[in-house]
């Protein structure tokens, strides 16, 4: 879609300066922004070099000791390090798997939401369930603290009042069910938002298909299962592939704010681990090595997801 391919009589063509070498002019206009993208997304790649040095903040790289692949090999050869890395990987895999498992919830949410008959009620539900998506994890933690805190949190006081427990439960500073708790918070935050795309996909389904199925005697659940669900499967599939591509990128914000001395063992996912060893313990070399492996593996996963998409759907996701 550009002016060059538009077929028009010669007289009506735009002035000459629009046809010739202003492609460089256009590029120059974009250049400042391309430089920004280079600075913040490509220049950091140079920082991978730190994975091969024993870098300490304040000491120039040239004065740092060259480590070769020592940081990488220490992940497997050093017993303590290996246990650490395995623990972190286990957390990452567990939480990502739980997140993928719960990614069907927005589908179910959408399928049943469109069955609500009152448009008003539907709107209210959609508006209010999407709200949590727009608040920060810090605020979520603040909610969690008010509701589940061991001293005078809402839940504890409620259960004590009801006489169901006789000592307050310390839900936040405990390492029981940490993975599950993190997943539940993600669901709370993302359920309504995640459903939006499916709801739109359902509205896009041809009503005649429903009519035809109804004529054939299909009841409500059969319509849902045989018309609505297949209608949103393509959308679900793309999002599923994307979450496979992001399998080891859990982000760190959620886990950072919920982290405490009690639950560190199960809450430390890769992203948080990199932060903890790199920024908190200033072990830049090792943290960079882990980061670097993580980036490469995640690129590989994305490639796999894309290939799967090409094979199964006949189209790439990107």
């Amino acid at each position: 879609m550009d002016i060059h391919t538009a077929s028009k009589p010669a007289a009506a063509r735009p002035p000459k300066r629009f046809q010739n070498n202003d492609k460089y002019h256009l590029f120059l206009m974009a250049l400042p922004f391309l430089i920004l993208a280079f600075l913040f997304s490509y220049l950091p790649l140079y920082g991978w070099i730190y994975a091969f040095y024993d870098y300490r903040p304040g000491i120039p790289l040239s004065a740092s000791e060259f480590m070769g692949l020592d940081w990488f090999t220490s992940m497997v050869s050093n017993e303590v390090q290996r246990q650490e890395v395995l623990r972190v990987l286990r957390n990452t895999f567990a939480i990502s798997s739980l997140n993928i498992a719960t990614s069907v919830l927005p589908v179910i949410f959408a399928v049943f939401l469109v069955e609500l008959r009152s448009t008003r009620f539907k709107k209210i539900v959609q508006t209010l369930t999407t709200l949590p998506n727009f608040i920060s994890w810090v605020l979520v933690y603040s909610f969690a603290f008010m509701l589940f805190s061991v001293d005078n949190g809402f839940l504890n006081n409620l259960l004590l009042d009801l006489g169901w427990i006789d000592r307050p439960l310390n839900l936040l500073a405990s390492d029981d069910h940490t993975w599950m708790a993190m997943t539940l918070w993600s669901v709370w935050k993302g359920l309504g938002w995640g459903a939006i795309m499916y709801i739109a996909a359902i509205t896009g389904i041809d009503q005649e298909i429903y009519e035809a199925a109804r004529v054939d005697g299909a009841g409500r659940f059969r319509l849902m299962w045989h018309v609505t669900v297949p209608g949103i499967m393509p959308t679900f599939f793309v999002l599923l592939l994307l979450s496979i591509g992001n399998f080891i990128n859990n982000g760190m914000e959620q886990f950072y704010v919920f982290q405490n001395a009690m639950n560190t063992n199960h809450i430390e996912v890769l992203d948080l681990y990199v932060y903890n060893i790199g920024m908190t313990n200033s072990n830049f070399g090792f943290a960079t090595a882990v980061s670097m492996l993580k980036s490469l593996v995640s690129l590989f996963l994305l490639f796999i997801a894309n290939t799967m998409s090409k094979v199964i759907r006949g189209d790439s996701i990107f």
């Binding site: 492609k23 460089y24 256009l26 590029f27 974009a30 391309l34 993208a37 600075l39 913040f40 997304s41 490509y42 220049l43 950091p44 790649l45 140079y46 920082g47 991978w48 730190y50 591509g245 760190m252 992203d271 990199v274 932060y275 790199g278 920024m279 830049f284 943290a287 960079t288 882990v290 980061s291 670097m292 993580k294 980036s295 995640s298 690129l299 994305l302 990107f318």
Partner: peptide, 26 residues
Amino acid sequence: WGRKFWYRFLVITMYFNAGLIPWYLT
């Protein structure tokens, strides 16, 4: 000039990053 290339140059950054520590040091 180089529209396709530069477009990809930007889009790739959505899916790939160097990692926290290299970014921080940058």
